[in-house]
Design a protein around this nucleic acid. Structure first.
Lengths: 190, 190
DNA sequence: CCTACCGATCGGTAGG
DNA sequence: CCTACCGATCGGTAGG
């Protein structure tokens, strides 16, 4: 297990730097410096700069899918299912704020065929939310809205939350709950 | 007026390239190529790469403020005011999709003192939405939510819409209306 | 994990 | 607006 320790350190530092400065503006020398080694030494653990980005993006994709899978397969009704899926999505972001920021903003620097794979994965993920919303709309529980637009709006609304997790402040459970409520029940009182 | 024509062309192309590849991954040679000139020739019209970014970011900030100012000063109630402000925000994005993408994602590449100015401006803008929500909460029209969180959620939820405006498809007025409704009234039917 | 180094490319300038 | 060019830095390799 110790074999991967250094590679994990590299990835953790890379997540932080890619998130702070962006993938393109982070040099391998920046990364090496932050680890206290020479840039050339990084290549004993990784094969390229892009490989790090690939691992961050696709392992986050895995985390997001794993989090909502049991909810999709549950017998919950549309409203409860949408709430649970949104909470699961927010929890993944909260647990991996740096990696989430990279996942959300730096994927476009992936080369092919990874870029196409990534876009496909992302669409499948959005589709899961869309399907839940469609079901709720069909049953008359949700408004008669375009499910694709509602899904993108909902996911986009969650995607600022990694900012609160920088280090100082943690978005609390109540705050995450509030976001979910706003999206599902709206801002106006009932 | 013709004097500024070339500089405007540079900025327009830069908006598109910065949006597609990111600021750091766009070189001055990329920009020059897309205009059919040499990289050195750009410097007859601009003084640095960052100057272009500054102009995009701050002129978009102006557009956003100008759009919601009359709404803030109107005598509308909290619900109508929040709806109008959200619609105005969405309209600015729809009218400037490339520049909006740059405004939203590339501002962190600004150097000081522009970076600090930008962050301050952005906070003031968010505060306007927060104030409207606070007013609605106080009057019991809105849920008893944290206004700062609601404001960020609302704005974040609108910030994917520039993607639809790439060139092929336009987010229709009804779609923008739907997004606003989801946020203010929620997904669930009343 | 380091020293030494590679070709390519970067933002930008001089001078016309 | 171009040619010619600058020093700095880029991702990455060879060889130990």
């Amino acid at each position: 297990m110790k074999v991967f320790a250094r590679k994990d350190q590299i990835r953790l530092k890379a997540q932080t730097l890619f998130r702070e400065r962006g993938y393109s503006a982070t040099s391998m020398r920046d990364l090496a410096d932050s680890l206290g080694i020479e840039a050339a030494s990084l290549y004993n653990h990784i094969s390229s700069k892009e490989e790090i980005l690939q691992e961050i993006c696709f392992s986050m994709a895995d985390s997001f899918f794993s989090a909502i899978e049991p909810i999709v397969e549950s017998g919950l009704g549309p409203k409860e299912k949408l709430r649970a899926a949104t909470e699961a999505h927010l929890a993944v972001i909260a647990a991996n704020s740096d990696a989430s920021a990279v996942f959300l903003h730096e994927w476009r620097h992936l080369g092919e065929p990874f870029l196409s794979d990534f876009k496909l994965m992302r669409r499948r993920y959005e589709q899961i939310f869309r399907k839940i919303i469609e079901e709720g709309t069909l049953k008359g529980i949700f408004r008669n809205i375009d499910a694709a637009i509602a899904a993108r709006t909902l996911l986009s609304a969650t995607n600022w939350t990694y900012e609160s997790h920088k280090s100082h402040r943690k978005t609390s459970a109540e705050e995450l709950n509030e976001i979910t409520t706003i999206l599902i029940e709206g801002i106006i009182t009932r």
